[in-house]
Structure formats: C-alpha cells, structure tokens
Write a protein that binds this DNA or RNA. Structure first.
Lengths: 344, 344
DNA sequence: CACATGTGATGCAACGTTGCAATTCTAAAT
DNA sequence: ATTTAGAATTGCAACGTTGCATCACATGTG
C-alpha cells in the first residue's frame, strides 16, 4: 500500500536501536553520537552528517526512560480532566486540541480523570512530588483554586483553562465570559426582551463570577430586568427539566434566557417545550455552544460559541512555552466568543 | 481540612526519596532495601518491617524512569481515541471508566487522539517500536482491523472495544450489537410497526455488520418489512437533518426507525419534527443511548443503553490481565444492551 | 578443629542517556 | 624537532532500579 512505511518495525528479534547502535555503526564513540544528535557545535560537520545519516537510517528515537532518568525531563504533559458534564464532548474536543498541538513534538499526553469535583489537590500533589509530568493543564478553574496555588508555590509549569484572582501571575487561557454575557444581553435586548434570566450553576469557577457580574452590568445599561437562577449546578438533568416546565407554566416568566451550559440548556429546552412554550417566540434563548448537538437539533436558535478544540491547542502552546521558561505574563490569552445569530 | 495529608510535598529543597534514602536511613544496603520492598522472602522479618516502616515514613514511591529503564515496564496503558462523534461524550465516559479501573494501581493513562479515521496504523507502529506503553486499548474496531493484526503479530498486549474476524483470538470487550438490533426490532414489531428502517453509518466497524445481520434476521422472523439506510456515516449533522425532513415528507416513510448513533439520532429527530412528524405516534424511534442527552430531551423515547463508562472499566481490567499473561481466550466479554422502554 | 550447610545481606553490572573533565589530534608557532 | 593553542573527540560518572552472583556469619556435623 503506502510506499513509505517505516522499516524499523522490529516486531521481535531485532534489538532496540540506541546510541550505542549508532556508535558501533559509525565507529564513533557513544558520547560523540549523543553530543552530535543534540547539536554539538564543536563537532566537525562531516561527523555530524555521518551521525544524522545513521540515526535516520536506523530510525533512532531517544529512549524516554533514559532521557527521563538522566535529565528529569518526562516529555509528558498531564491533563486533569474535570468530570463535569456541562459542556458536551468537552473531553474529546480538548484532547483533540491538545493532541493536535503536540503532534510532531516529543510530548505525550497523560490524562488524569477527576471524579470528585475539586478534590484534585491530591492529584496535583502526586504530580508535584513524583515529577510525573513536565507540565499540567487544568480546567474549570476557580477564583482561588487551590491547585493553582500549589503549583505556583512549587514553581511548577502549568496553565489553567480559566483565570484566577491570585496576585502572582500565571499562564492561562480563558473564554471571555464577560463578553459572552454582554453579547447575550445585548442580543436579547435587541430582540425586545424586557425581563431576562441567567441560568447558571454556581460551580465555583471564575467564569461563574465573571458572567454574573457582566450580565448584571449590561442589563442595567440596557435598562431591562435581569434575574439570575443560581445553584443549578447541583440539579440533575431531570430536575433541570422540571425547572423548565415550571418556567413554562409561570405567568411571570422571563421573555429571554441565557444559559452557559449545554447540558442545562438541553434540559431547559426539553422542559420548556414540553410545557408548551415555543422558543424564539414566547421566550428567546441564547446558550453557550461548544458542541454540534444543539445547532443540529435547533438550527434556528441563537448561540455563542466557545471553540474547545482551539482552546486545547492554545493551552498546550502556552504550556510548552511556560515549560521552556517564557515569562508567564506573556502567556495569558483570552478567546473571543463567536456569536451565531440565526434569525433576524 | 483532611487530617491525613501526605507530608512529602518537597516543594523545593528536599531531595527525592529513593532507595538510597531508605538505605541510609535504615543502615541497610541499597540492594536489600530493593529486595525487601518487592517482597524478598529470604529477608528477616525484622529488616522487612524496618524497611517498610521507613518507606512509609518517607513516602517512598519507586521512580518510574528507573523501573522502566531497568525492567522495560512502562506502567502505562495507551488509549487510542477515535475522533468519531457518533457517541456523545464517548471520550469522557471511556476515560473515566479507565481511570476508575486503574485507580490504586501503578498505571498511568496516556491518550493518543486519532484524527484521520483508521489511519492509526502509524500510531500502533509507533507504540510497538518504541515500547511506549505496556498495553493498548483501541475502539471502533473493524472486522479485519489492521491495528489488531499488527498487535497480534507483535504479540503485544491490547484489548479492542469491538470484535474482529481474525482467526487468532485476542482480548476484547464488545457491546452485544446483535441483541441490540434484535431487541429493537422486536420492540418496534410489538408496537405494531410493519415497515421499519435501520439508520446506520457504514463505518467499517464490526458492529455495523453485526447489527445489520441481526436486524434483517429478526425482522424476517417478525415478518415485517426491513429497510436499511446505509452510508450515513459520511453525512454531516446538517445533511442528516435533511434526511429526516425528507423522510417526514415521504408518504412512503417507515413507521419505525432504529438508530445506532446518538448524533445521527439527534439530527434525524431534528429533521423529522421540523417536518411535522410526531415521534412516538406517526413514527416510532429506538436509538442506542450512551449519554444523558437524549433521555433529557425526550424522556418518552425508547432507547437501548450502552454503558461506556463500564466498558472503559472492563476493557482496562481485561488489558491488565492480558499484560499479566492471562490467556486471551478468557479475556473476551460482551456487554448486554439495557433496554429502556418508556411508554406502554 | 576443619568443614559443610544454610541464612541473611550485599556488591556489581546493566538499562540509555547526558555533561563535565580529560584526552587525542591537527596545525601553526617556536 | 619541540612546544602549544585550539579543535575535535572521548571516558567516566551519574540518574534509580533490579537480579544475579557473591559474601559474611552463625550453626551444626564429622
């Protein structure tokens, strides 16, 4: 089939190709080969060529364990994966984004799933004391996230998906939640809504605070009523669905809703429609979109998109630069919300 | 807070705890400590206790690089993550399942995201030639999956999510697709359907074949018309949605539909309802459910559940046993579909 | 007392890599 | 021919672990 298959398959029998192999092949010493491979400038061009040639021919790849033992560099980045279901297919998108960014580098990705929310200080402690990765990516970051504190204290490379309120700066990439909320409010106001509601789970993330604050400010500016339905993080989808049904039956219900969670949006929509409300007519709804699910089901519904795949890529690039020693102040980026207004 | 926090945080300054540290502390030799820690029976009980005590006090954890270099054991299992979007939140569930199963063991999980479908022979080749993991989990397995062939040939520990048609047995865990199809057909027939349709993407997995075969057989047995809408794997959600709308407009449309993909189900439902069809009345629909999305949106809809979290756990347990040398014939399990009939 | 037997503990080499210190080589200067 | 500066290469130790071969010691046997 493919004409350029790698030949060093060495299913069995063939021994691993190490620096020694190259040394024997080229007649040079082991140290010279090592030095040459990582670009020793004191070497003759001729020998460097010879080494490179042999390395390529043999398909040499440095042994991870050897490098790690000697240098302490693991060439691993760790993703602490929050168990949250809010954002559909978050894990896949994030991981694909990371994978895309480390393709071609020497890094591997290890994923550490988290079960109990924000119990992950143990995870971080483990990584820190066992130096099990060169850097860490955390998500669902809280304003005074203890994990961040730990890694700052240990001066350990990490990047957070989400900002914090710590004085000491650190690398982060975050969704611009303030703009998200402001955009959503303005859109609803523009559609004639006078009494809107923000449905949000107090999940102790920084984004939660940012959204609420911005939401309130922008609603005040537009001169419309702005309620907040808090604490929905604890509700099961079924319970959230009931909330939707109650809202539908409520004569005093809002005429516009903003939701920052896909899962909650789905439950809410389920309840509202079940309760006889036609979305886009009696009630306007805007949600934060991170997967293709909702646009597929309700193409006419307004949404504001966060690209999790891109976020994974950006987080990884920031982290790698942090590992390479770049100053953290240069490693702080925000992702602009992408509004998708479907109708008028 | 927690009274039993680990004390060996060693943020900086403190040196790593190694066998040497314990040796110095106990006054024993390095070899003795090593031997003792992995249960040398020739040692005096007294010294063994002394070593264990010291190890615990210091919070000793064997260095992964050291072990790996010496023994070749990586203590890593690799998940090759298919990019497919069919099953919503598949990645998160699978990873959590694996994470749950390796908790407390020495294993770490590395995830290798796959972009181009079934181009993953390169991935496998890389793992094989660089011995970068002790075992591999693959998903979306095809009947003559080249990845399986490679790993069988190399006698490398792996487990596939999905069966194959290879003569040589290998470890697998699979959803019982035949039962899924049969259950679904019988349910539709029982609801009075006479002309049903299977919507399925020819995604070259083994499950595809199993489902179609079982579907046809069971429909014949029930004496009802059975069509198959193939090749839907290539369709985008938007296109799939159009298919739903066309079906809705078709006077000759089926009275029952079976779908094996959540994503396609969503698109289909979107199109059908947009086209004016009321599900559960004019058309019955049964889908394979792997996430909470659809039950939240349409609680009244029949579904048959595959527990991906449990699958991840089972795959891991099988793989670990395979790594430990258990005969593969004992490492083949099936997961029974769990029907959730909502109405009468 | 010399010797075998066993029990318990240890020294040493090796896995593959890197970085420093030390060495050889080349060619120019004396 | 001898010295010497610099260029080019190499030996050695170390990272933390394991397993084999060895060793020290006490006890029992002839």
């Amino acid at each position: 089939m493919s004409s350029k298959t790698t030949t060093n398959n060495m299913a069995s029998g063939t021994r691993r190709v190490t620096l020694k192999t190259i040394a024997e092949m080229t007649g040079l010493s082991l140290s010279t080969v090592s030095l040459s491979l990582r670009g020793g400038t004191t070497l003759k061009q001729e020998t460097r060529d010879k080494v490179n040639e042999a390395a390529k021919a043999l398909g040499y790849v440095p042994d991870r364990a050897g490098v790690r033992l000697r240098t302490g560099k693991t060439n691993v980045i760790a993703l602490v994966l929050d168990g949250s279901e809010d954002s559909i297919d978050f894990a896949r998108n994030m991981i694909q984004g990371i994978g895309h960014a480390i393709a071609g580098t020497r890094y591997h990705l290890t994923v550490i799933p988290e079960f109990e929310r924000h119990n992950s200080t143990e995870t971080i402690n483990y990584i820190l004391s066992n130096r099990t990765a060169d850097g860490v990516i955390i998500t669902h970051t809280g304003p005074r996230d203890p994990r961040v504190q730990m890694m700052i204290d240990a001066d350990f490379p990490f990047v957070s998906h989400g900002r914090t309120e710590f004085y000491t700066p650190h690398a982060y990439h975050d969704f611009h939640s303030e703009d998200f909320a402001a955009l959503a409010v303005r859109r609803l106001a523009g559609k004639g809504c006078r009494d809107i509601m923000l449905v949000i789970g107090d999940d102790s993330t920084t984004n939660y605070h940012n959204i609420v604050t911005s939401y309130r400010k922008e609603a005040a500016r537009a001169g419309i009523e702005a309620r907040v339905l808090e604490g929905t993080a604890k509700l099961s989808p079924a319970e959230m669905r009931s909330v939707g049904m109650e809202l539908a039956a409520d004569p005093n219900r809002p005429d516009g809703i903003i939701s920052d969670s896909e899962m909650r949006t789905i439950a809410l929509v389920g309840g509202l429609t079940e309760g006889g409300v036609t979305l886009g007519r009696e009630v306007q709804l805007i949600y934060k979109q991170t997967s293709g699910i909702l646009p597929t089901l309700f193409p006419q519904m307004d949404s504001i998109r966060e690209d999790v795949f891109a976020a994974g890529g950006e987080l990884t690039r920031l982290l790698l630069r942090r590992i390479d020693g770049d100053p953290v102040k240069q490693l702080q980026t925000l992702a602009e919300p992408q509004p998708h207004w479907r109708s008028g």
